[in-house]
Design a binder for these strands. Structure first.
Lengths: 80, 80
DNA sequence: TTGTGACTTGTAGTCCGTA
DNA sequence: ATACGGACTACAAGTCACA
């Protein structure tokens, strides 16, 4: 059997990737556009796009802004 | 009874403060100095000190470095 | 061992476009 | 509505001397 045949994979997924996936997922659930989310969070639209594509290394303060805009706790954006 | 007499307080504590408290707490549990933690995480001692004092707005990538050095998942550093 | 202010460098974050 | 690029400006990263 391969290394990831059963149970959890050992391969560490980056915090940046986790955050990106969670933001996209939550934003879709709330039926918000990148622009609408950016507005709610007080950030720029292109920045949100960059975060979702993992090209930017976002800071805690802005993680918190996104979390509030999405109606979740900051730590939930980093949860697997 | 006062507003916070029982149950969870409503007052929102900043993600930065949460992170700082968790880093200090976990570092103490592991009996590491700021210097030792900084070394493990590949960061500078004073940078860790600043994060613990909440004077720095740390990024996800560095949250991840600290988490790995402390042996926890990144999201655990933001948990209340 | 930790706290803090100051400083330089790299990049986060904004804004303008184009597709 | 989103991706992507270029050109900015603001601020995080990283280091140091000293309390």
């Amino acid at each position: 059997m391969g290394p990831a045949a059963s149970g959890q994979s050992k391969k560490r997924v980056s915090a940046r990737a986790l955050l990106a996936a969670n933001v996209v997922s939550l934003r879709r659930t709330r039926e918000l556009s990148q622009e609408a989310l950016a507005f709610e969070a007080g950030l720029h639209r292109t920045f949100v796009a960059h975060v979702e594509r993992q090209v930017r290394n976002i800071s805690v303060d802005n993680i918190e802004k996104l979390a509030i805009a999405l109606g979740v706790e900051p730590y939930e954006l980093l949860k697997p």
